[in-house]
Design a protein around this nucleic acid. Structure first.
Length: 359
RNA sequence: CCAGCGGUAGCAAAGCGGUUAUGCGAUGGUCUGUAAAACCAUUUUAGGCAGGUUCAACUCCUGCCCGCUGGACCA
């Protein structure tokens, strides 16, 4: 594949690329590039971390970039996920691996790593210390967004270690690219800044879009475009805001039909985002089925023409929703089958569900 | 370790020794071929924990736990 084509593919899956010239240069050299993302096992996994994440990783693998997935069990522990129970966190990490596999992750090109293994090495901690030594507490606290914390007043001391560890991860596992959600940009910018100071190569940061919550947007959110998209992302803590990988067809239908979806408006429209970032990424052509009295079936070959029709009102929100439910269920069916047929995976899923179920 | 202040429903936030705080949110309904908005209704013994005083405690007293602020100790 030509460098231009690779760039085109990478651009298609990303919201922003920090270090674009470096990326172009690295691709031209034809060296093996490694991208990484870290995940905190924290309960159920939603569709953006499951299905959409795998679509993106597989596209990077297609352009010749290998992937390392860091299951950040210690960071989840520091961030008090799953009640700060490291055993539950580890079980949930194993569950995530099955979810990605069920989504068709090209795992011959993916290496899984665990923070609990990295921390066994003195070199890792020396890196953490080096990074911490080269930044200020204030700068670290400004990264607290990457932990999903908007309030900085009640951080635990463990959470102060978190950004320094995350920055250390990328150097330690020798990744060239940090490929994660836009909500991780603060720590990636910190990592790039510190790289020069401690004598490491700056990582390229490729950030993908955060799919927004299905619930209506808040009236007065942040004005900044990036801050806004992070604030409005789907969230595990609000089950109706997200589609979970383990949701049944009925649950998906209920959530999608309840979702915010203003007529003719694409901005802040979660249903349109699902089409853009999930359905059109998984299918060459997308068919909208509807009753003849509402215009009959239509087929779209790309998202742009679909969006045009939505904006001019020839696609009605309810028809779009009904078809989204159909596509999501179609895409999730192989995942459901995987969990039905794989005893170990099913058992892990049941355990994770029991962790998050309310008493 | 000491002192001051605080801990009230999912969240925010008052008053009060005894009979509904309230706001947001959430849920249901009406209206639109979706949702949102709007309007109507609902949200059930909330009071950090343990004792005590009292006919009656969220309210007063004691102890403990946790948080914030300041201070002491280390120097």
């Amino acid at each position: 594949m030509k460098v231009e084509d690779k760039i085109k593919e990478i651009k298609a899956i990303s919201e922003e690329i920090i270090g674009f010239d470096e990326l172009t240069a690295d691709l031209a050299k034809n060296e093996k590039l490694i991208a990484y993302d870290g995940f905190e096992p924290s309960g159920k996994i939603h569709i953006a971390q499951g299905l959409m994440r795998v679509l993106i990783i597989n596209k990077l693998i297609e352009v010749g970039i290998d992937f390392k997935i860091l299951i950040a069990d210690w960071l989840a522990y520091a961030n008090n996920k799953l009640g700060g129970d490291l055993e539950k966190i580890k079980i949930t990490g194993e569950y995530y691996k099955h979810v990605w596999k069920a989504c068709g992750l090209n795992d011959s090109k993916v290496e899984f790593l665990w923070t609990s293994n990295l921390v066994k090495d003195d070199d890792y901690w020396f890196l953490v210390m080096k990074i911490a030594k080269n930044t200020t507490l204030k700068r670290i606290i400004r990264c607290s967004q990457v932990m999903g914390r908007s309030e900085t007043g009640n951080l635990s001391a463990a959470q102060i270690l978190y950004p320094a560890m995350q920055a250390a991860d990328i150097f330690y596992i020798k990744a060239n690219i940090a490929q994660m959600g836009l909500d991780q940009r603060k720590v990636n910018m910190l990592t790039r800044q510190i790289a020069d100071e401690i004598g490491y190569k700056k990582p390229i940061a490729i950030h993908h879009h955060m799919i927004m919550s299905l619930l209506p947007p808040e009236k007065d959110g942040p004005k900044d475009k990036i801050e806004r998209s992070i604030k409005m992302k789907m969230s595990k803590s609000k089950p109706d805001s997200a589609i979970f990988m383990s949701d049944s067809p009925e649950e998906i239908k209920t959530k999608i039909l309840k979702a915010y979806c203003p007529t003719k408006i694409v901005v802040d429209n979660p249903i349109m985002e699902y089409f853009k970032y999930i359905v059109f990424c998984g299918f060459e052509k997308v068919e909208i089925k509807r009753e003849n009295k509402f215009g009959g079936d239509v087929t779209y070959l790309n998202y742009e023409s679909f969006q045009t029709d939505y904006e001019n009102g020839s696609l009605f929100p309810l028809d779009v929703k009904i078809n989204l439910v159909r596509y999501l269920n179609q895409m999730l069916q192989p995942v459901r089958d995987y969990f039905i047929n794989n005893q170990e995976a099913r058992s892990l899923q049941e355990q994770v569900e029991s962790f998050t179920r309310k008493a």
